[in-house]
Amino acid sequence: MSMKPFNAILIRDIKLASRSFGDVLTLVLFFIMIGVIIPFAIGPNKMLLASIAPGIIWMAAFLSSLLAIDRFFRADFEDGSLLAMRHANISLSAIAFAKLIALWVITILPLIIATPILAMMLFMDFEILIRTILSLLAGTPALIAFGGIGAAITVSLKRGGLIAPVLILPISIPILIFGISSIKANAGIGVESAAMLFLIAISLLAMVFAPFAIALALRLDQE
């Protein structure tokens, strides 16, 4: 398999997203706003906010990416380009893999870039911020992979909306657990690195197997 069509799809998706810059901006705004409204809910206590800041940032990333799921394959499905891609000289799983990487770049990367803003407002230590960013880098590929499966399964539903997040949320809980545990420094010796290893393992496995599940779902949907 040559890498040419793979790269073409990757670049095409990223280009399309950069053209609809508004969508990316909306998602980042949503991400930041979740972090900003929480102090209104629990009070501006510096100690409290600093201690739960990693959790808030993970929750914000979690919810933002879940809400973005619905868009994953919909446009390509509706304008028929998904069908057209099936006749390209490349397997559907490879296409799904390329799209997952593109999705990570256009939905998650902007959120990670915006993380320092939230960290500042939530009085996070610099060290914790670095850990949080590392844990997001390690865990979000799995989140995107699961999201992709949910999106592929519900792509033909006209009123999909909330169903994909509801399906994906329960199986994404381990990502959240290991993501948070890899940040917290006071959990015990070796706990963070163990959590980080589990997180990376889940992300790798999810990124390897999700493209096949996505390809299967898309193929079954168009039979």
Binding site: S156, P174, F198, D221
Partner: peptide, 26 residues
């Protein structure tokens, strides 16, 4: 159509159940 797609999701869930169990216990 639902059956085929739900079958995919059911199996994805089945693979994840042990991981969920392990992570929650941990």
């Amino acid at each position: 159509r639902a059956a085929k797609l739900i079958a995919v999701l059911t199996l994805v869930g089945a693979v994840n159940i042990p991981i969920i169990k392990f992570s929650v216990d941990w």
